[in-house]
Amino acid sequence: MIDREQVLHVARLARLELSEAEVERMATELSGILDHIERIGELDLDHVEPTSHVVALENVLRADEPESSLSRERALAGAPDAADAGFRVPSPGAS
């Protein structure tokens, strides 16, 4: 049902690098799980509204007032590579 090419496509979307063995296993396992899941295809759901959230809430707002937040230092404290008051990453084009 879900083949190697699809696994590689989804892995790329999910930013996961899978080993050859993981690709094989993922294809088998995801197919098995999707087999089970696809039973919901049997239900007649044409006129049913989707539920994204169980508690009826609408536009939970607060007053738009400035207040203190996490300091820059604190926000950067856990970064693997902080530099010049920011998060340093390799250039998207580097290799």
Partner: peptide, 10 residues
């Protein structure tokens, strides 16, 4: 579809 099943279960 899963969101609609959720409605039915609720």
């Amino acid at each position: 579809r899963a969101q609609r099943v959720r409605t039915k279960i609720a």
